[in-house]
Amino acid sequence: MRMKTRTFLFPYWCQKTGWWLAAVSLIWWITIIIRALLDSENCVEMPDWMIQPTLFLSFILPSAALFLVCLSREKQEDEYIEYIRSRSVFVVAIIGFITALIYFPFTNIGVRLLEFSEYKTYMVYIQIFINPIILTLLYLIIFKGSLFINWIKSHNDGQ
């Protein structure tokens, strides 16, 4: 189980950019949470013109970071890294298939039960975007986790 991933992955600097974007989005989210907490204490509501860009940035930034990190080469992308990458993709594909079988019927029923059409639209957006994001995140955890475990083991093995 091995695929030639080196040819279609972004260069390593994209991964670095992705991590920087992840840091920025983390700061962004912390700012939003603090702001929301302060506003709720002072009973201040966010102006309407700010809601859309805030929501957009809150999801686009971390998603872009995630996809850049996942779809970029490692510093030394050799065949063993390719093997770990392929294995992680395979595990995530299986999980994705199983969750799609279970998740979509249930969420469709849930969306149908919602009374207001506005919420329905939001739920459909969430349904479309959240599953690939969760699966990509899962891939990142499995892939980087495997690399980290292997790094620890090889480090302990020493010479």
Binding site: Q76, D78, Y80, I81, L147, K153
Partner: peptide, 26 residues
């Protein structure tokens, strides 16, 4: 492992994985 990895052009983890039969090289 690091010296061998550098000479061959792979990572040290790859050499470790081959030595421990966790990975069959191409």
């Amino acid at each position: 492992q690091a010296q061998l990895a550098e000479a061959i052009g792979v990572s040290r983890q790859t050499i470790f994985a081959i030595e421990n039969n966790k990975f069959v090289p191409s």
